[in-house]
Design a binder for these strands. Structure first.
Lengths: 210, 210, 210, 210
DNA sequence: ACATAAGCGAGACGGTACGTCGCGTCTTTAA
DNA sequence: TTAAAGACGCGACGTACCGTCTCGCTTATGT
């Protein structure tokens, strides 16, 4: 996100600043939540001038997005060799991600981004990362013959990601911690439903996938 | 949401004001989106003193939540007599709801509400309204014998609501209008997946539902 | 100040209210000073509806003025039989009046009233009361032959009232209490100056008084 | 009054702003008087953010005081070489000062300042400036032999300043303009009284001055 | 006795100013 | 050129009062 400089003249950007700022972002975000998350406070906490923040990121959203992006990567790489285990592993990882305050923040930003067009970049990047990951996972399953070739992939991804998301959203925040301890119990029924759906659809052979 | 007074003494609250303010809220929200949604502006547009707004709602979130709650009701009543058609109808209604800026705002607030506890009321009310509706729909299906009795209900609801939500979330905002015109196409694959899953699960007879 | 009603019909004004309100006025004024002196607070403290206050007095100034007027009366009646003693007594009374917070408030209001025309009534009433008193005092002195007939009276009154006022104004607020204990010491030199001036002017016989 | 910063880093305060703001203060004060004198309005008229005002002055009183302080200086320098002419000149200048709305405002603030301790600075500064001026004037008179050495100085200053002040205070606001045109007539009797008193006191040789 | 007419407490109402805070931009000095 | 510091115009925040206006009582007449 940070705009890169070309030439060599003038003082070099302090490479440590990016890290210090992003750390302050997470700390501040954790303290006050989205409302009350201010650039002034981030700069203050990081011991940095506001200009140095604005030099790198243009808006609050971009700033927070950059800070959170680091945490998204682990989600997108799941490969256990078996489709069933892949789905279960991904659902578990997603659930833990959503139960974590910082992880939930990515959801918050993605939801905020819809219709604003300002943070479109973040939205798009998150989305395509997941799309690629899901595509690879499902593609592998078809290659291995675990899924029939004609099965529509998009609804599977939607139901998996969305199902986990909705499960957390519908949960009382007070139960988050307990849920994190018993992820498997929460995730299993949904995974079972989706796997069953994907297979039985494939048998019928209806292929109006996207 | 508006805090109620006890006794009968003093001038009565003008009941028309609630309506005028909430209308202004929707108008303002439509104009500026969440960021830039200002209580000052709402009061100005409604031709009302800020005090009259604060007298009824304590925060922006509560104010917007109250304005949006009215629009949520239609979603929760679906009864066509057939499970398949119920699910399809609900999915279609949800999709259209999420594609509408005001409808999406309810999502935004629900997501914001998680972990804030301030607007917990809103979160809880939305959640339970949907839970009841989904419960009734699925219960009816079991009664009519369209679903086996042991089938777990929660994952079906999660996959349905979340699948639609995620589908919209993953979509480029530019495509929202077109998607609204072709809802059926977007909704059908997901519905098919879930129906297939629910039935084939029932056959196997696994009953670890919530 | 309170506008009087004509006829007989309807409930009578509670006579105790005037007193309760004015007492609350003095209490509140003592607590917060002029700034921060609010009608809401007065009504609250008096256990009275705002309407009952506004029914009697139209503005903050009028309200405070009414409350303070009671305390002004004692000042205007001094008659010891001797001019010298009269002047000393008046000067002493004035000094103590100005050193008292409530007394000083009358000055504050009188000063505020200049050029506002809103509280002109208060200003005029205070002024003429003092004028009458001073006129009587000085007239008596001339009658008794203590002052020559042609002596100008206004400057004597101005110098006396103003001299005491300025003395207090120039004093550090911290010294007010001590000054009240030693009034005589503060007042004597000024009285001596004025008496000396009044007499020696009379001898020369210049008579351009107002 | 404006709080001063320490180091050299950061953007400098625009020196022109002080002037622009103070000019707006006088304009606004002239328009609405003390009541209805609003920091918002001042900032608006000066084309300045409220923050820039609050950055320099903490309260309305301080702001107005700063604006008026400029106008006080001329009063404190009177030196005609003769005591009689000095007193007359000072009395005339004072009278004109008090008749001017802006000049009267300094009185208003000084009176408000008593007992508030907030604007104590203003009170003290005004007071000591006048004290120094009066001291110089009277000291010169003694040196030149126009006044006997033992004469008490404070009551002379009190009677002079206070007498003029009281004269204006007792006057109907409607007569202010006419009075400004005929200052000499208003001032002469008071000056005569004080001069006569000062001299005849000196003769008697009573020296209990403060 | 009963309508009529205030007085009274409470408090809602449209406003406006308060003093604070954050925005995003700009200017300054130091590195 | 970047970094830090911080001034700047702007405008929203949530609070407090303003002065006016209903309310539902209570208290007094007049008829």
């Amino acid at each position: 996100m940070a705009a890169v400089r070309g030439g060599g003249r003038g003082r070099r950007r302090d490479p440590g600043l990016d890290a210090r700022i992003l750390a302050a972002v997470l700390a501040e975000y954790g303290r006050t939540g989205w409302a009350g998350f201010t650039i002034d406070a981030v700069a203050r906490r990081a011991g940095v001038g506001k200009s140095s923040v604005y030099l790198r990121w243009a808006t609050r959203e971009q700033l927070l997005a950059a800070a959170l992006e680091m945490q998204t990567a682990p989600l997108t790489t799941v490969d256990t060799g078996s489709f069933d285990r892949d789905v279960l592993a991904l659902a578990t990882a997603l659930m833990l991600h959503f139960l974590d305050p910082a992880g939930w923040a990515t959801v918050r930003i993605a939801v905020d981004a819809v219709g604003e067009a300002v943070v479109g970049g973040f939205h798009e990047r998150i989305r395509s990362a997941h799309e690629v990951a899901a595509g690879r996972m499902l593609g592998g399953a078809i290659e291995r013959g675990e899924l029939p070739p004609g099965v529509p992939l998009q609804p599977i991804a939607d139901a998996l990601y969305g199902g986990v998301l909705m499960h957390v959203l519908a949960m009382s925040p007070a139960d988050h911690e307990r849920a994190a301890a018993e992820v498997a119990d929460h995730v299993a029924p949904l995974v079972a439903l989706i796997l069953a759906g994907a297979r039985s659809q494939g048998e019928v052979g209806s292929g109006q996938g996207r």
